[in-house]
Amino acid sequence: MSSSNHEHGAVGHIVPIKMLVGTCLALLFLTGVTVWVAKLDFVELRMDEMNILVAMGVAVVKCTIVAMIFMHLRWDRSFVGFVFVGSFIFVGIFIGFTLLDSSEYQPTIIPGDTPQVQLKLDALNASMAADSASSGEHDGAASQ
């Protein structure tokens, strides 16, 4: 039963070892690129955000390689790829709308501390004052 399944390819696609090793080397090389880019100072070139852009770009390429080769999406039915990409789109919608809203309402937040924060700050100041007072007494006692 199982042998006939193997003969008919029922176990699915098998990726050649060479390709797996090559993929692993490519991922290691890209990791090296990320580390190397992190050490470059783009500020002098007036490209402040280039570090993060390159790092994220490399990460996207690595993610794509993993999905295509290690996760077999390259050989699987296109529907599976559609589901995979669709999941990222939904995450993008979720995070995108939330961040858009957050960045929009941040300027409208009234600056200053809430009463609860003020209470906590007052309690913190009081305890710090008490600590300093008690440590002053200790210092005084020690000096005597």
Partner: peptide, 21 residues
Amino acid sequence: SFIVWGHHMFTSGQSPLVNVV
């Protein structure tokens, strides 16, 4: 269903731009 959740939050402090969308 995935792109309308903000209509529960019109009065929550959600920004006017996102409210409209």
